[in-house]
């Protein structure tokens, strides 16, 4: 009945992997200026969370975690649809996807 991966790989490895993936996403959001790449890094962070929830769910034998992953995917799809529409609108007005141009929203 048991899963082979649960016996061979400790849960901590999944946690470290998810943490590393999340931090790479954070570095990407902070480092890049292209709005599209920042969106991709946000997706990376969401996926790190998804993997962590799935690992906890599988190791704990509780299906609720995987249902939450499903809802995170739903929210991510909605977020990307609206976000990319905003990026296209920004490009239409300023001919660039550089978010530095949006600093004029301050005043």
């Amino acid at each position: 009945m048991d899963l082979e991966i649960i016996k061979t790989i400790p849960l901590e490895h999944y946690i470290y992997f998810s943490t590393a993936l999340f931090c790479i996403g954070i570095i990407g959001v902070l480092m890049r200026r292209n709005a599209l790449i920042m969106f991709m890094c946000v997706e990376l962070m969401l996926n790190a969370t998804n993997l962590l929830l799935t690992a906890f769910s599988a190791y704990n034998g509780d299906a609720s975690g995987q249902v939450f992953v499903f809802f995170i995917m739903v929210v991510a799809a909605a977020e990307v649809a609206v976000g990319l529409a905003i990026v296209v609108m920004i490009y239409r007005n300023s001919r660039s996807t550089d978010i530095g141009l949006l600093s004029k929203l301050k005043w």
Binding site: M1, L3, I6, A58, Y59, N60, G61, A63, Q66
Partner: peptide, 17 residues
């Protein structure tokens, strides 16, 4: 927390989910 419950491997299948 893993020690509390026995891991059930068919949790992630379509039926149970």
């Amino acid at each position: 927390l893993v020690a509390n419950r026995e891991p059930i491997s068919n949790v992630g299948l379509v039926e149970s989910l």
